[in-house]
Design a protein around this nucleic acid. Sequence first.
DNA 1: CAACCTATATATAAGAG
DNA 2: TCTCTTATATATAGGTT
Lengths: 164, 164
Amino acid sequence: MARTRVKLSYITNDATRKATYKKRKKGLVKKASELSTLCDVEACVVIYSSACDSQPEVWPSTVTAHRMLSNFKEMPAIEQRNRTVTQESLVRKRIAKVEEQLKRLREKNRRKELTQVMYQNIGGNGNTMKKEDLNDLSWLIDQNLNAIDNRLHMRIESFVLQEK
Amino acid sequence: MARTRVKLSYITNDATRKATYKKRKKGLVKKASELSTLCDVEACVVIYSSACDSQPEVWPSTVTAHRMLSNFKEMPAIEQRNRTVTQESLVRKRIAKVEEQLKRLREKNRRKELTQVMYQNIGGNGNTMKKEDLNDLSWLIDQNLNAIDNRLHMRIESFVLQEK
DNA sequence: CAACCTATATATAAGAG
DNA sequence: TCTCTTATATATAGGTT
């Protein structure tokens, strides 16, 4: 995507492929993180590369990925229900409502887990955190910073309005 | 990333957020697909959005995601072995070798599965394929096209050399 | 290697229909 | 809401250090 347009097929040259892998892996994870923040959705990315990384790359964390995929196993049941035509719209509405609750609970849970991790580790022995935890933690901190930032702006705006 | 720089925080406006979600989801999946092809790695992306999609977005397929995540559960054992310091380099080498074999087997398996799906569906009743299968199939076709393309170029080159 | 450097290729925010 | 357009923001290929 730069300097030259690259053909979309396996890169034979080892060095080039490894370089591309590192760059694009970083980019992919960044995009996933942005989507997650901008649209408040849960997302995970898993990359297996036996050649480049000794361990699979998992974003945002092993724990999250596991949770997402185990939720995933429940899907067929929901899908079946969605396919049922009997009183379809009513059922759909109920499902949507339950999904909304579920989502809130997941979010709450996620924050709780992460906050715990944060307190366990900040000021502690330093590097007991795994990379995945750091990723999740970084996300949490970003979210909190954004919340603070928004509140600050609101306060500044109301202050400015009072002055007028 | 265009026209205006967007602040990296939750998009409050429903329409805007939904539009952004659709665009970025598409982009993310494209990037994952490209990484997978360019570097020959297995990758999967899962996005849960109770607000925007009624179903989670899964790339490349439900089957693949399941497989990747269940392989994932085996990790702790491997990680433990990696942490063992006894004859570390030798053990690592053996692990690398086994991982390489495993990777080849997975790839072989993946192709087999997909080819089966392909034959089951092409020329059949038309739309019994799920979106995820289509994604995987599309990947398989791309791979085959690339292979054909490469072989064609080789033949052309050898032909040109003969002419000289 | 890894980190940094730019010319280009892509992604995408807004706006229009 | 969806699609198309287009100005900008980002990502990144190929080098350099």
